[in-house]
């Protein structure tokens, strides 16, 4: 294993997700390379400290009332969704039919009076350019099967579909990659 691979496998090594073979290679490299030993040591200390950061806690008085508050809010919102609040009655505007015929007549006169009927031509779409293609946008789909360690899978074949949207040239690759889970769970609005 090379130093670069050690960097690549660092996260998996520390979380114990490396295969036996890879772990052996990894540790063989460490035995021979002081730089990587130091890297692993620092990363381990970082991860341990991160994991041990104190949990923000507003205190028991906050926690004790929270379930009730949430439950009430949820019910209220659910109720307002089932029975949508009556929106103020809007008076439907009548189309002014009485004016329709005189209006149509004057418009006709207007167009007929134009030389070469150029306006009519343009309005009927004869000279319109065709719709531009959505250049710069390219999309592909990939389907992933995933499972968690905590094993709380209800449906065994849960699939997450990702749509990769590549757009706007000139941006860094990281910015080009917009990934979305597009299954029906996505009703909460876009990120």
């Amino acid at each position: 294993m090379k130093c670069r691979q050690v960097q690549f496998y660092l996260t998996d090594y520390l979380s114990g997700n490396l295969s036996l073979n890879d772990t052996r290679d990894f540790e063989e490299h460490l035995a021979a390379c002081a730089t990587c030993r130091l890297l692993v040591q620092e990363e381990r200390k970082l991860v341990t400290t991160l994991r041990g950061l104190p949990t923000p806690d507003p205190g028991e008085s906050y926690w004790s009332g929270l379930e009730q508050t949430i439950l009430e809010k949820a019910r209220t919102r659910a109720a307002s969704n089932v029975y949508p609040a009556a929106s103020p009655q809007r008076k439907r505007r009548e189309f002014p039919w009485r004016l329709a015929i005189p209006l149509a007549a004057s418009l006709a006169l207007f167009f007929l009076s134009l030389e070469d009927n150029r306006y009519l031509e343009r309005m009927l779409g004869t000279g319109f350019p065709s719709a531009t293609s959505n250049a710069g946008e390219d999309s592909g789909r990939a389907t992933y099967n995933q499972s968690t360690r905590s094993g709380e899978i209800i449906e065994p074949d849960f699939q997450v579909e990702y749509t990769l949207l590549l757009s706007a040239p000139g941006l860094a690759p990281r910015n080009l990659l917009m990934v979305e889970i597009i299954n029906q769970t996505e009703s909460e609005g876009s990120l």
């Binding site: 929270l66 508050t69 949430i70 809010k73 949820a74 919102r77 659910a78 969704n81 995933q146 968690t148 905590s150 709380e152 899978i153 209800i154 449906e155 065994p156 849960f158 299954n183 029906q184 769970t185 009703s187 909460e188």
Partner: peptide, 24 residues
């Protein structure tokens, strides 16, 4: 915190087709 659980409540039907509660 409040809004997350209220939305969870609203979207509970979607949990039928979703494998992971925590992720959701």
């Amino acid at each position: 915190t409040q809004e997350t659980f209220v939305r969870l409540y609203e979207q509970r039907e979607n949990l039928r087709t979703v494998g992971y509660f925590t992720g959701f």
